[in-house]
Design a protein around this nucleic acid. Structure first.
Lengths: 147, 147
DNA sequence: ATTTAATTTTGTATTAATTTCAATTTTATT
DNA sequence: AATAAAATTGAAATTAATACAAAATTAAAT
């Protein structure tokens, strides 16, 4: 894992979001900031269990729940069994490749929800989820066909 | 339930989608066409169990799985435990009210995914999911505050 | 510093939607 | 009617997520 953030930075990040910085919370935050792969709770757990041998899954869930409430992460519901978590809370879309399973970010205009039919509706959250085959996997398929 | 479709129409609808029209499939299709509430598998099961007392949940899941494969329905993943199913396969967005739980449709331009970052990507499906408070629930809240 | 209170973390048990799969039933074919 | 193919059932398994009480840690108060 890349070590891009100091403990002080991580603590401050949490404090700014009104979260008391415990060891677990700092580690989960560090993982999310350094691994922008839209991980599942289990991804995070598996990665941290080496560092914190006493870590429980419940703690990971608790932490993510708190992070969501405080606006640190967003949950992604991508037609999979497991939820994924995204530390990038800026407005953007997600593309999940049906072959490799990777999730890509892409920019979207917020204007798309400025429609007559939603006047009077209070909008809290917008998810743009696209499913298909990513560029890499598509090129692999093309190469095979050409041989 | 509104009776808007004849058996012949339902059978033809399935046949056109390359699905052999069994009783269960006709009933599930009829329910989906007449109840455009984005139902869960359980909603469908609970509604049909009166008509077909021997119906099993597995059959509902099997039918929905087949319908998805054949492009009759789309599954909605709205950050709930259960998946919902939508017989309207035209491009549109979904708004789920966090208070009443209702899911509303709204129009979206397909252009939103015409971005540079997705060039070379094969797009199979697009979900636009919006979360918040619907007009009705919002007006109720406003009225309470005014009293 | 020690006691007390508050918070966080853990671990086990539970929940519930979905899946698996073999057995049964129904439908279609010869 | 017999046989083959397809659809349906029901029970068991799976598994992500939740609930919650006990344990551990941290913070506050004396």
């Amino acid at each position: 894992m890349k070590m891009t953030y100091t403990i002080v930075e991580l603590r401050d990040y949490l404090k700014r979001h009104d979260i008391k910085p415990s060891t677990i919370r700092i580690k989960v935050l560090e993982y999310l900031l350094n691994n922008r792969i839209h991980p599942t709770a289990d991804d995070i757990y598996q990665s941290l269990i080496n560092d914190i041998p006493t870590l429980s899954k419940t703690s990971v869930y608790n932490t993510l729940e708190l992070f969501m409430k405080k606006g640190v992460v967003n949950a992604l519901s991508l037609k999979e069994k497991e939820l994924r978590y995204d530390i990038n809370t800026y407005f953007h879309g997600h593309f999940r490749c049906e072959i490799c399973g990777n999730v890509y970010d892409f920019p979207v205009s917020e204007k798309i929800i400025a429609v007559e039919e939603l006047k009077g509706f209070v909008i809290r959250n917008v998810d743009i989820n696209v499913y298909g085959i990513c560029k890499k996997c598509n090129e692999k398929i093309k190469n095979k066909e050409e041989k």
